[in-house]
Amino acid sequence: MPRFAKKLNSPVVHDVIFALTGVGSVLFLALASGHGAPAIAATEPPLRAGATLLGLLAAAVTMAAATMRGERGNRDEYVNQTLARSALIGMVALVLSASFWEALFADNVGPLHGLTVVAMALGAWSLGYLYTRITGTVR
């Protein structure tokens, strides 16, 4: 493994990245998510909007999968497992919290909008990373 790539993918670098991401997402959620969701412009037919979203999602998944394939060789397995486990924790936490929000608060406080969901996802991944670094990849 080249020394620079190894240093770039060390656990310490990931610790710093996730600390910054976590703080950034918490700040965003605290300062920006109070703004109401913008009014939805009814310009696109639902089917076309859905198809566009699915296409975008498929392209993003393909791109992310290709990136991961290349990246995996540069990281040691502990970092890989920590990232994978924390991503899983973050994803489940995001789905649960978004669902609870929709069920309990959306009517009174308003629905979640795009960037808020992104900030929630990054925050949940960062917290999952912190949890996994403390408890390990086994339990």
Partner: peptide, 22 residues
């Protein structure tokens, strides 16, 4: 072993099970 110091520490403390190749 071509892994990070943190990986060695995690294995020693039982927080990480190494893969078969490792």
């Amino acid at each position: 072993l071509d892994v990070s110091r943190q990986a060695v520490n995690a294995i020693e403390t039982g927080k990480h099970d190494p893969s078969l190749p490792l």
